[in-house]
Design a protein around this nucleic acid. Sequence first.
DNA 1: ATTAGGG
DNA 2: CCCTAAT
Length: 647
Amino acid sequence: MVSKKRLHYGGFDGFRSPVVPKAPRSIRRNSHKKPSAGSEICAFELLAAVAGKLLQESEGSASSTSSEQKERINIPKDNVKQEPLEVKLKPARLEDLDQGCCAESQFVPEPSNLELKLEPPLKDSLHSDNDSGLEHASIVTTSDLFKEIGTNVKLEVSDSKNIVIDTPSKSEGGSYSHGDLCDVNMDATANIPKLIEKETEKLQETCVELNKSYSSVHVPFYSDPVPSACFQRHRDNNVKVGIRDDDENCFSYNQHITKMKAFRLQSRGGYRRIRKMLTSKYWKTAPKLKDYELSNTTSGGGLKSFNQYKKYMYKRERCQSQTESPFKKRKLFPEHVEETSSESISNLPERHLSKRVKFSIKSFIVPELYLEMPETSTVGSLKRNVMEALTAILGGELHLGVLVEGKKVRDDNRTLEETCISLNSETFGFMLEPSLPEASPKQPPPQSDNHQPSSTSPDSPITERVSLSNSSESKLEMEIEKNKEEEIEIVVDTKAKAIIPITAVTPEALSIVPLNHNNNNNNNNKVISKRCEASQSQRRTRRPFSVCEVEALVEAVETLGTGRWRDVKIRAFDDANHRTYVDLKDKWKTLVHTASISPQQRRGEPVPQDLLDRVLAAHAYWSQHQSKQNGKHQSELIQTLGTPVKV
DNA sequence: ATTAGGG
DNA sequence: CCCTAAT
């Protein structure tokens, strides 16, 4: 059976994209949607300004004799020498996490477990004064930054395992709300972008709230015996704040707030995979902050309002979700599925129910922070710098990643259901990212982070490393809790002629190709059931091509040739976001192979022989005619292949 | 970002 | 499907 569509060879009806000769990519590229870029710098300028402001204010209050002076640091400031003191804050090596299961442990944390705690300042009582030591040091830093928003922040150092930042809750001073920082309610079929958008908004609000009123951020410290072998020596006594880059095992000195390793937001499982993510070069895409001396900031830009920043973040997030497809947004919301469905689907089961998944995120982990400062720096300055780093991070270029089984879910188009973010999903979590989510974490280089046991910084004898550590338990202190409870809603669509079970039909499935004959959409359930397994690995969920898709592909290739997969994609799969041009190319390859083998050897859903014949014909034709060239081929091809159009 | 191929 | 070299 041959579709009437074959009448349209060379025609342009039915397709959004005309057949155009292949043009240089540089030209074609401009004709298509392009993600707007280049806004990262802005955010970091803002961060820099904020951090600078914070520091400035802190310095001011520290050196002044103001009555509200709360710093009780015994270390004379005059004594500050040039020796940099490296302070490394890190929850735990992923190796350790891995090794937690397998006994072999080459990493032995230093006993110097410390806790930096930021908490609401006690209004009346003074804190302990033995600030000179790191143990049980309790220092209150009050920066105008926080005063502006009505919050004093205390940073407390003790010998516990964690660094905790507490700020007074809105009304009840002193305590913080720890249960529902980020509550969102999502439909099970909602897409990842939607989830991310929601979570990000919540998170950003939370970040703002940190400086405003309530929230708590636990920053697990961790002791790292790794000598700074590749840590460059530096002379100035400026405090360096940065984030370790495990890829290079080096600290970026020129970028005080360079890279945020990762915010670990994860439940118990999947450490190995997390590690994979954390160590990937993905992090190298973190925005740079150059030539910005946090410790010498004059704060030219001043302090922009957090609301402004929040707005910016929203905007930014929105932009990202729109870089894909203008239609995507619509498909994100199950409530709107019927819009699409009425267009393309009319013969589907009659139920429209969706499970809803509730999320409750308690808090997030800041996996590691790197600080470097002179040995003689005051504890107060340490606190300030930690605060700076945290402020910068929390207010920074944050993006939310969704983790399932420790693996980042890359395909934003997948529904929660497909991703196994559903009822019993314990292994699902979030992670904060410093950079664009688009930057796909590829194969992470082997963790070259061999914890060199001793010989601390051979090239920098004057540098002493101070390690702050946390226990393995507390690493996960800020895990995400997803409400077990779920509610199941049944949404019945009465408008659409066809009522669609959106739990079974993915947005992608709705948007694929003309869905005329061959009701071969009944494999959706099977597909979905498999998606969960696949989502646990980075590998994309396998989605076999339906016959409809195959036909669309064949038709497109017949007209466009085999060297223009991007055009094929645009022409026939523009709305199928899960089909990349690489996928189409691969599928064609398999089709050609399938067509050349005996039917007995074929597997999967059988492709109609006529389609396979067309595949062979088109393949032969285009391999002979070197595809490319231009569009004059279609008619030629039709003649070559004959015109098996049936009326 | 695309293309082309190997795995 | 993934990964990558080459454009």
